[in-house]
Amino acid sequence: MSFLEGQLLVASPAMSDPNFARTVVAIANHDEDGALGIVLNRPSETEVVEAVPELDGVMDPDELVYVGGPVQPASIVVLAEFEDPAEAAYLVVDAVGLVSDRTGLERLGSATARRRVYAGYTGWGPGQLEAELEREDWIVEPALAADVFAEDPGELWGSVLQRKGGQFRLLARMPVDPTVN
């Protein structure tokens, strides 16, 4: 079995779960016990400092909380680019990983170069993700640090498929509602 840390899962157009339609998920941990990931391209309308006042001064005041997935949606998860990657709970790609308790919110500004805040995460039990991959619910592509901090998260699904190339370039241009094509 090959594990998918450092990979993106791009929802196939056939994905029937509305929690994941047109999502791009960065996999932070994957082993025989299951997998953990963060949806990268679902900004909410809530500002970070409104949801987590302790981050005032660390985050841009206009920065939004992203919906990281349907698991524990009231919990806050932070993906950041670390000055010292050893401080990450899990690395996703390069020096980008999940903030751990040992970094703490008070050191977040000095320990990281960039950061993004998520409400919740995605999770799969043993064999669940493998079954979804077998059904072709997901398209796998290596993650780039730029994907985590995409300027326009609404374009991430299409841009990752475009980067993958081949037949995926056609999917990248597929409208949300194919009947309007």
Rank of each mutant, 00 (worst) to 15 (best):
V49F: 02
S2F: 13
A74M: 09
L64I: 04
D31P: 01
V93E: 05
L4R: 14
S44N: 04
I38E: 07
G69F: 00
P126D: 12
Y118S: 00
T46F: 04
R116G: 00
G109I: 08
L129N: 04
T122Y: 01
E81C: 04
V180I: 10
A119K: 03
I76R: 02
V49A: 11
D177Y: 03
P13G: 15
D94I: 10
D177Q: 09
K164Y: 02
R163G: 02
V77P: 00
P175G: 12
Y118A: 00
L9P: 00
E141S: 13
I38G: 00
D84I: 12
D94L: 11
E32T: 15
K164L: 15
D94T: 09
Q128F: 05
V176I: 15
D177L: 08
V39H: 07
A150I: 06
P13M: 15
Q167W: 11
V24Q: 05
L55W: 03
M15N: 07
I38T: 05
D147G: 02
G34V: 10
M15I: 08
I76W: 05
N181P: 05
E134A: 14
G57Q: 07
N181M: 13
V77C: 03
M59D: 02
R22K: 04
G165Q: 14
P142R: 15
R116D: 03
V39C: 07
A80P: 00
R163L: 02
G158E: 08
E83K: 13
V25A: 05
F20C: 02
G34I: 03
A86Q: 15
V67P: 01
A119R: 01
E81Q: 12
L36P: 02
G68I: 04
G125Y: 13
P142Y: 10
A11C: 07
D152P: 04
D17I: 11
V65L: 09
K164D: 11
S159L: 10
L108F: 15
M174I: 07
A26H: 01
A11E: 03
D177S: 12
P13K: 14
V67A: 10
L129K: 04
P73M: 11
S110W: 11
L133M: 06
G68W: 04
A131Y: 08
R135M: 13
Y90W: 09
L105Q: 05
P70N: 12
E136G: 07
F3E: 10
P73Y: 08
E151P: 11
E151T: 14
A95I: 04
A11N: 03
L55T: 03
V78F: 08
R114Q: 15
A28H: 07
L91G: 01
V39Y: 06
A88G: 02
V117Y: 04
D152S: 14
A131H: 13
A14R: 11
E87F: 10
G37Q: 06
D101R: 08
S44C: 08
T103Q: 08
E136K: 15
Q162E: 14
S12M: 11
A145W: 14
A172T: 08
D101Y: 06
D101C: 07
T179S: 15
L129I: 13
A95P: 01
